[in-house]
Design a protein around this nucleic acid. Sequence first.
RNA 1: GGGAGAUUAGCUCAGCUGGUUCAGAGCAUCUGCCUUACAAGCAGAGGGUCACUGGUUCGAACCCAGUAUCUCCCACCA
Length: 894
Amino acid sequence: MSIAKTYTPADVEAKWYQRWQEQGFFKAKANPRKKPYTVVIPPPNVTGVLHMGHMLNNTIQDVLVRRARMQGKEACWVPGTDHASIATEAKVVALLKEQGIEKKDLTREQFLEHAFAWKEKYGGIILEQLKQLGASCDWDRTRFTMEPELTEAVLRVFVDLHQKGLVYRGIRMVNWDPLGQTALSDEEVIPKDVMAKMYHLKYEVVSSEYVDSAQEQGEKSQYSIPNTQYLTVATSRPETIMADVAVAVNPNDPRYTHLHGAKVRIPLLNREIPVILDEYVSIDFGTGALKVTPAHDLNDYELGVKHNLPVIDILNNDGSLNEKAVLYVGQDRFAARRNIVKDLEEAGHLVKVEEYASIVQTSERTKAVIEPRLSLQWFLKMEHLAKPALEVVENDTVKLHPAKFKNTYRVWMENVRDWCISRQLWWGQQIPAYYLPDGTYVVALTAEEALIQAREQSGNADLQLTDLRQDEDVLDTWFSSWLWPISVFDGFKDPDNADVNYFYPTNDLVTGPDILFFWVARMIMAGLEYRKEVPFRNVYLTGIVRDAQGRKMSKQLGNSPDPLDLIKQFGADGVRTGMLFSAPAGNDLLYDEKLVEQGRNFSNKLWNAFRLIKGWEVDAALPFPNEKAVEWFSAKLNATIAELDEHFEKFRMSDALMTVYKLVWDDFCSEYLEMIKPAYQAPIDPETLRLTTVFLETLLKLLHPFMPFITEEIWHELKERGPKEYVCVAAWPKVQPVANSAEVLARMERALGIVGGVRTIRNQKGLGPNKPLTLAAKTDDAQLLTDYDGIIRKLAALTDVSVVTEAPAASVGFVAGSSEFFVPLEGQIDLGAEKERLSKELEYAQGFRDSVLKKLANEKFVANAKPDLVERERQKLADAEAKITALEQSLAAL
RNA sequence: GGGAGAUUAGCUCAGCUGGUUCAGAGCAUCUGCCUUACAAGCAGAGGGUCACUGGUUCGAACCCAGUAUCUCCCACCA
């Protein structure tokens, strides 16, 4: 038979994925005899494509799910997509524009038709891509946040929250995205550091009550005496002066006491506005005078309310100036700014321009600069929902991994503000509020129900459906995704159905910290509000995938590899393990192709271990010579399984992978297989083959969650399997205690230490790996040499191992444990070098002994330290002294 | 401006309640090897004042205080 020397993933991956699906391994059904294990996918944007972040995130989920499945749980991973209202609508608008169609020329229905067509065409590509990664989702459960059932869930919740008095409508200063032309929630706004310009503008003072009080106290003032004819204000937004309704100064500012009660004239416009006094104004920032523009700044709005000022809104939805501005009407805000600066300068109103570091708020989705804007929006009160949601994280009912995110979570929850849930878009769930002709409104699940309510509310029994007008706005996307863990099991339509009762609460959620508030926190709120139970127990927060230089991956930089290309090149298993090698929870992953290369190499290593075993011929007559090797590997394997389980419990995925990686590569391949490997083309005894096959099968099981494809391939190539016998559903190995495990491991470690010593000498002396050598040991543990004789001779390529009392002449030595070993080497001995080596060794041992002595001589140590610790120190001292004696003798013998 | 976390080998990170294994792992580097499972490999080696300064303790990478640097989160100074 011949097996390919290198593993070629492309040949087998699609095959196994299909088989698993045919077998229905990924399907989950409520099964009272099994424990449920549930994960809901963070639904990717329906029109999105797979990027590296998805790869990391979904690999982690798949590892968790596959392991749970093998542990005999009813593993249920629910896939699906998100309608992503702003992002998708923006994409559709852009696409239509390319076709020469403007959104404003379409009706809502026509637009939605286009949007759904787009969704049908491109939607769900990402889910197909996930299959190539090996994601073991229950595809029959695939959901979409805007499908009819989930939309109904959203509407039900809206109606319910409205009935509870938690949803309200109000005029508030909201974050307006002039590009998306919609309001955004506070969480969708990203502050960006910029260098901005501060314009100092002169406003002419026009007051009859002018009193020059500043002049009198001028000498005492730390501030320069202002121009009495003008008041200078500092602003970063000169184009909004047309919306000014006042100029505010601090009442305690001595520079401006003469202006108390005065009026000033807006430049260019010449409209008069009052000077108001408010301690909100900082004396030492800017000029100490603040222009008040209630329509376009939150603080100004609050000042306006406090001082009873009018509101002048000079902006259109798209960020251009409207006729209320009088000047620059129709120009975009930034164009208007450029123009007005020029005009102000010409008119002599521009005193100076300063550069200063500032922050602009931008839209997370469209990147547009946010315009604070007063508008009528729907809000959800958060206080009632946030309180219990904070509590369950504080008391670890929901555990965040890593736990440091608890702090972030707490701060946000304690300061949470009401959630603006309306969006001025079409792609999404239209708000089920219906306006009556009299301007009042009702909220109901359907138009028909709304009509009944409306008739009652208005006392007008003749109202018709056509008299009602439904709110134009849709709900924030997150208003559907916060219900996801419940809605995917139809928990709103049918709150007592078998699925939701069985699979909810889910177990683990894997997502990025960037949506901790958007999504995670709100799911916890919804879960507690609607099921009285948290939606999940553990939240694993991944990092961001960056490039090797730590930059975020982006299309512009071109530093983001195509995940599907990577899978083609390195295999899904290689990519999965590559991503996981260096991805502790919460840490950013610096992606480097070397990582997936390492993953690919690991696949190949495993493949070749299989090739070796598969290639052996059996001779039934041979005795079993590998008791020590088998005993040791059993112990090692079981110790490692325990370690692995612990890593999983703590969600240390990288550590878990590294643990199996080393078990396979170092312990199994480098040590165990080398110990039992028959000579070239020699047959193997049946018992060793049987046991080794079992070992390999166990390793395949441990590896399967990480590397599903290659493990399944080898599983089936290794021997004939029953029709349902897949590693995918094999039982996860349990720790089986091995007698004297610690001692077995320790003794083999010492034996391997001897092997290492001989190999080091081979390397140092340039002897090559196979030159026959002998070994002489000065040791008080001759039994070790007897027990491990075969292993030591084989791995170190020795023809003979003997016990001696004196160092043989002309030999090179090394120390392992407290014993000394010698390799006789005719004519290759450098006496000087040997002396130097021994002296160094001796010096180190003496230093070590002295430090232990010092410790033991310290009365306080002996008195305060734990007794067994002191005992150990005494043992260390004895060992060190024995070693020193041996070294001194050897040195004297030279 | 407020808060949280971090700083350990060239890189990415472990290091649990201070005390065997306390200075580790993987990758990278260097030196030998095409030794018939694997050169996508084998064998071996060299890398660190545990950010800095003090303190507590018999004993500190670990506890405390301060300093520096970095990251993240929150925040309305025009």
